[in-house]
Write a protein that binds this DNA or RNA. Sequence first.
DNA 1: TTGTACGCGTTATCAG
DNA 2: CTGATAACGCGTACAA
Lengths: 324, 324
Amino acid sequence: METVGRLAGVSQVTVSRALNDPKKVSANTLKRIQDAIELTGYVPNMVAGALASKRSQLIAALVPSITNVIYSDLMQNFIDVIRGSGYHVLMAETGFSQEEEQAVLSTMLSRRPDGILLTGIHHSAGCKRMLLGAGIPVVEVWDTTESPIDVCIGFSHIRAGEEMAQFAFERGYRNAIAVSAGDERALRRKDAFCARFAKLTGTRPDAICFESGATIERGRNGLARAIDSGFRNGLVMCSSDLLAHGVLIEAQSRSISVPGDIAVMGFGNQDFSAFTLPALTTVDINRKHLGAQAAEALVARIGNQELPEKCIDVGFQIIPRASA
Amino acid sequence: METVGRLAGVSQVTVSRALNDPKKVSANTLKRIQDAIELTGYVPNMVAGALASKRSQLIAALVPSITNVIYSDLMQNFIDVIRGSGYHVLMAETGFSQEEEQAVLSTMLSRRPDGILLTGIHHSAGCKRMLLGAGIPVVEVWDTTESPIDVCIGFSHIRAGEEMAQFAFERGYRNAIAVSAGDERALRRKDAFCARFAKLTGTRPDAICFESGATIERGRNGLARAIDSGFRNGLVMCSSDLLAHGVLIEAQSRSISVPGDIAVMGFGNQDFSAFTLPALTTVDINRKHLGAQAAEALVARIGNQELPEKCIDVGFQIIPRASA
DNA sequence: TTGTACGCGTTATCAG
DNA sequence: CTGATAACGCGTACAA
C-alpha cells in the first residue's frame, strides 16, 4: 500500500480508503491509485486488514460430511450467497460426532470468523461455551428447535417421519419396515415414522439400522436383510434416497416388483430420484433455498440485525412418484 | 496472551513459546501457563499470528464443483491430511471456467495462503501470473503435464480414453458410441477413446455431449438419443459412472439387455458402481490416495523440499465388471 | 530458560 | 478530501 501510494503521489491511508470506501476519495486521485495498483499488481492483505478491523470476513461452516450430496448441495448455495456478500468460507467436516465438532470448532475459532454455520441442533456443552465466548452469530441448519444458540433454519425431522407414515397409511400400506443410516437425524425420522405407523396400523415396523452413512450398497443390503427376516410385502421406509435406490436395485435383482410387491420411500429428493425405475417417492427439502437463507440470515446477524424469528421452519414436501 | 502471561507470572512471549514450541519452556512454567489458559478460556488468534510470522497456515483449494463426488471425495482426504499438518483449507468452487477460477483465485490470494491446490492443468494467463507473483507452492491435481506451474499429480486422460477403447476392442466390441459431460477433461477422454477406437476398428464412434455436468438423468437421456439416432448394438462409453448408471436404467426401462444388446463403460468407480444392475465396468482412480498425496506434496513444498518428480502420474485401472 | 523491543500490513481516530 | 499516529495480537531477533 505504501508503494502504491508513492506511485500515486498519496499516502498509504488514502490507498486504504480508495479500496474500502472509494467515494471518500476524489475521482482524480482514485484514478491514479487504481492505475498504480494495476501497475504494481498489488494484492490487498486481508489478514492485516482483519487484525486491524477485527472483522475477518470469514465464515466457518461445519458440516457432517462433504461427500454427502445432502450437505454439499446445501453448502454450494450457502457459499455462493455468502461470497456475494464479500465473505470467504472456512469449511470443515465434523463426521457426525460431537467430539469432532468441538475439536474442529476450537481450531476454527482461532481464525476469528465473523459468523458460524453449524449443522444440527445437538452440540456439546463445550461447543456452546466456546460459541458464547466467541460472541459471534451462529446459524444452525437442517433441524428446528425452540432454543437455538442464536438462530436456526431447518425442518422438523419428527414431523417428516410422521408424515411419511401418514402418507404410507393413506396409500393403503399396513405393513412396513424401516431402513436407516446411523446418524442421529435419520434415526429420529425413523423413530417418528415407526411410532406413527404403529399408532395408525397397530403394528410397529421393524427397523434395520446401519452404523454409518447411506450408500446404495447398504440399501441393497438392507432389503436383503429385510427379506431374510421374513419381510415380503409392504412399504420400505428409507432414511435417504441413496438407501432407497439400493433397495430398488436389490428388488430388481430378486425380481421383486415395485410397487407391486413392495413399495419404497426415500428421503431427500436427490437429482436422480425422479429417474430411477420406478421413480422414487420421496421427501423434498429445498436445500438450495435453505443454504441461501442460512447465508442471508448469517449476514444479517453479522450486521447486528434481529431476525423476525429465532427459528425458521422451511418445511418439507412429500413427492409422490411410482415407487410408493 | 498478555493476560494469560500475567496470570502465570510470565511475559507474553513466554506464553507464545509455550504454545508454539512447548519444549522451549520449563515444565514448571508450562504447567502454570496451561492452567492460566484453561482458566481464562484463551483462544489463540491465528490472524495476528499469521501477520507476524508471514505464515497463514491456510491452503486455498479450487475445485470445479463441490457437489460432484469425484471432487468432494478427493477433497475429503486432502483436507484430512492437510489438517493433520496444522493447516486450514479455504475451499472454493470454480465451476469449470477459467474466468471464474481467476476471479476466485484473486480474492483467495488476499488471504495469503501458504499453498494452493488447483484442479486441472489449464489455467488463464492471469492466473499463472498471480500465482507466480504470490510465490507459493502450487499443486495441480487430476491431470498430468510436462510443464506444471509447480508440481502436478494426476493421470493422463488421453491414455485413459485410449485404454478404454483398447479394452472395448479386446472384449470384442466393434461398434461404439460415446456419451460425455461437457467439461474439458471428460471431452479429452471421449476424444481419445473415439480416436483409438476408430484406429482399431475402422469406424469412428458417434458422440453425444452435454453442455454441463453428469447426472443420471442425462445418462438416461443420452441412451435415448443414441437409440433415436439408430444405435442398437455395441458399447456405450460414458465419461462418468453417473452417466453410465443412467444408461443402465434407461436400458432397463426399454428392456434392452446389458451386456447382451449393449455394453456400458463408466469412469470414476464410484461407491455405487459395483452395485448397479449389472455391475458397472469402469475406470478406477484412487481418489483418496490422490487427495492425500496432493496434501503431502503441498506440505513438503511449503517446507521448501524439492520433490523427486515435478509430475506424479498416479495412473488408473480398468475395473471389468458385468456391464461390458 | 526467559524477557525486551520491534515489526507484520492494515484500519480507526483524529486533526488539518 | 487527505494525512499523521496509534492500535490490532502475535512472532522473531537479540539480549540477559
